[in-house]
Amino acid sequence: MIYLDNAATTRTKPPAVAQAVLEALSACGSCGRGAHEGALSAARTVYGTREKIAALLGCPRADHVCFTQNSTQALNIAISGLLGPGDHVISTDLEHNSVLRPLCRLRERGTAVDFVPADGRGRLDYGGFERLLRPETKAVACTHASNLTGDVVDIQRVGRFAREHGLLFILDASQTAGVLPIDMTAMGVSVVCFTGHKGLMGPQGTGGLCVQEGLDIRPFAVGGTGVQSYSETQPEEYPTRLEAGTLNSHGLAGLSAALDFLNETGAVHAWEDALARRFYKAVRDLPGVTVYGDWEAPVRVPIVTLNIGDWDSALVSDELSERFGIATRPGAHCAPRLHRRLGTADQGAVRFSWSYFNTEAETETAAAAVRVLALEAAEG
């Protein structure tokens, strides 16, 4: 199989990731639950991973890295824990449902929500941030990069807007953590939400949020933490404030190994970007092929999303899989607002996405497959 669905999850991991998980299964107990070797081994693993994430994302304190199962859970914690009735939040048309649905639920409870519009190519109207500003605006919640088009949001610009108006800034880094440089302190980000199984190349079931010092996030879930057991309320201190229940120490061991690989390898984005652009250049002028997103932008994440004529995206993806052995993602990609802006709400679109472990040969094979299907579509 040629796996080009890395924006959903990276399938090929650094070999050390699986080894680290296997070793942790035998060595780790429950983090923070005792002083025996199993518990201490888990605690060392978890804290070491906190330190690596803090360094990667510019979080000033390792104990303000709070682990979750994925970025969806992290975004729910941040959005629900910082906003409430009477508040106003600005988001964008580029958002994934992991941002949209928590915001819509808050809107039902009295939080006002507005969205900065995107045009028919998926480009944000940055002037919309200023136009949507209200006296009661409390936060901006937006993605760093679209999981549909691969377009990157100018986070420096959004962070500057948030700082100038005293707003909180919640960043969805699902598609960019491990891919693009992120320094939450320098960029003016209040909370960075990330997942471990995409660009970080770690196991599924790992993710979290990095929290700016001094920020008060209401716990989304409460329960066991291993500390302050006689208190009826969740501990106030981070990270236990947001980490009810037993952590996935085994998965975090794998994430730690993936972070080591990224640090040792250096910038992996250059290779991924080169492959995506190579594919784009090979398919963009094929008959009946429409490629979405702003390809004049200098920085993108390694995603190419397209349609072939009026063929349903699920049919195209199935043909790619069954005839050519190429894995892609069709449909709506949990990005309903952007699909409507692109005019693809009914057809959906086919997303190709690369990781560091993909090759030029795989990319050429995928482009050739699209060429075959495009010619077949043109012939009717």
Results as ranks from 00 to 15, higher is better:
I2G: 12
L4K: 01
A7V: 05
A7K: 02
A8T: 14
T9K: 11
R11I: 02
R11Q: 01
K13W: 04
P14A: 09
P15A: 11
A18S: 15
V21D: 02
L22D: 10
E23D: 10
A24H: 01
S26T: 08
G29R: 03
S30H: 06
G32P: 00
G32T: 05
G38A: 14
A39Y: 00
L40N: 08
L40Q: 13
A43P: 00
E51T: 13
E51W: 03
E51K: 13
I53N: 00
I53V: 12
A54V: 05
L56P: 00
L56E: 05
L56H: 05
L57S: 01
R61L: 11
A62S: 15
C66V: 09
T68N: 05
Q69W: 02
L75E: 03
A78N: 03
S80R: 10
G86P: 07
H88Y: 09
I90S: 09
S98Q: 06
L103W: 04
L106P: 00
T111M: 04
P117A: 15
P117H: 12
R123F: 02
L124R: 00
G128N: 10
G128P: 07
R131E: 11
L133Q: 08
R134S: 12
K138I: 08
A139D: 07
V158E: 08
G159V: 02
E164A: 15
L167P: 00
T176E: 07
V179K: 04
P181L: 11
D183E: 10
T185M: 07
V189F: 10
F194Y: 15
T195K: 00
T195I: 10
H197Y: 11
K198M: 09
L200W: 03
P203N: 02
T206Y: 01
L209K: 06
V211G: 01
V211R: 00
V211T: 02
I217S: 01
I217V: 12
F220L: 15
A221L: 14
A221C: 12
G223P: 12
Q228K: 13
S229M: 12
Y230F: 14
T233V: 15
Q234V: 03
P235Y: 09
Y238N: 04
P239K: 02
T240M: 11
L242C: 05
T246V: 12
A253K: 09
A253I: 09
S256L: 05
A257D: 05
A258N: 04
F261R: 01
L262Y: 07
V268I: 15
A270G: 11
E272I: 03
A274V: 08
Y280A: 08
V283R: 04
R284A: 14
D285M: 07
Y292W: 13
A297K: 11
V299C: 07
V301C: 05
P302G: 11
I303D: 03
L315G: 09
E319T: 07
E322R: 15
I326V: 11
A327C: 12
P330G: 12
G331R: 12
L338C: 09
H339A: 11
T344R: 06
G348H: 06
R351L: 08
F352N: 00
Y356T: 06
F357K: 10
T363C: 14
A368W: 13
E379H: 07
